[in-house]
């Protein structure tokens, strides 16, 4: 447990020291919200949620890429793969929750009439999905540029795809969009339950994907035999 917490803490410390990144993390969802402000409120809130998701995914992608060279030596120092990826995920979720707070308050200050419980749930879903999503891309694509381009593609698809179509359910942030509809448009409970279920399933699948990639990359190699000190 101590190892897990230490990795989470160091991830948090690293991200908090990147002041420029933090500023951009806050700026991105804010821009998304403001750019749609004159239009329909639902669009504005959906854009905000997508911005939060994108910002946290990007932070996760960069944190994963930056840790690539450090992790093998941490493995030699006594960490097991799950300490490393779960610790990092915990740290990223914490950062995501922290940056979500002002975006929970923003529509409130803006005087938006919506279900704030739903907004909280949608933000939680965005952050929950975004951390393992960015980590998985970072684990699969070792270069930041490729990873960023893939993230950009996914978010663009998410933004442009018809949410009612069946293909939309395959996009990672569909959950927060569904919950946002319930939040803003006062639709039936089905939107909320579908969204929550989607969020939980996608988070679990992405976390499993991260676990699988990390376990392969940081596995104990078969050619190496460890004997106790004789």
């Amino acid at each position: 447990m101590n190892r897990l917490v230490t990795v989470a803490e160091m991830t948090l410390r690293e991200l908090l020291r990147r002041r420029g990144v933090l500023l951009l993390l806050l700026l991105m969802p804010l821009t998304f919200y403001l750019i749609r402000r004159d239009a329909y409120l639902g669009q504005s809130v959906r854009s905000l949620l997508l911005g939060v998701g994108w910002a946290v995914s990007t932070a996760a992608l960069f944190a994963t890429t930056a840790a690539r060279e450090l992790e093998p030596r941490l493995r030699l120092a006594g960490y097991r793969p799950h300490h490393l990826y779960l610790g990092r995920m915990l740290g990223l979720w914490t950062v995501g929750l922290v940056i979500s707070v002002p975006f929970f308050l923003l529509p409130m200050i803006d005087g938006a009439d919506l279900r704030y419980g739903g907004l909280a749930a949608a933000l939680l879903c965005s952050v929950a999905v975004a951390a393992p999503f960015g980590m998985l891309i970072g684990a699969l694509l070792p270069r930041e540029l490729e990873g960023t381009l893939l993230l950009l593609t996914v978010v663009t698809v998410q933004m442009l795809i018809d949410p009612a179509g069946s293909g939309a359910r395959l996009t990672p942030f569909w959950s927060s969009r569904e919950i946002a509809t319930w939040t803003v448009d006062n639709t039936d409970q089905g939107y909320l339950s579908r969204g929550l279920l989607h969020g939980i399933v996608v988070t679990a699948l992405l976390a499993l994907g991260v676990a699988a990639v990390a376990s392969v990359r940081l596995r104990r190699r078969r050619h190496l035999r460890h004997l106790p000190v004789g």
Binding site: R73, L76, H223, L224, R225, H226, L227, P228, V229
Partner: peptide, 12 residues
């Protein structure tokens, strides 16, 4: 194959 007795340290 490689056999190691004890703890391993590595400096890249």
């Amino acid at each position: 194959e490689v056999t190691v007795s004890g703890r391993l340290g590595y400096c890249p």
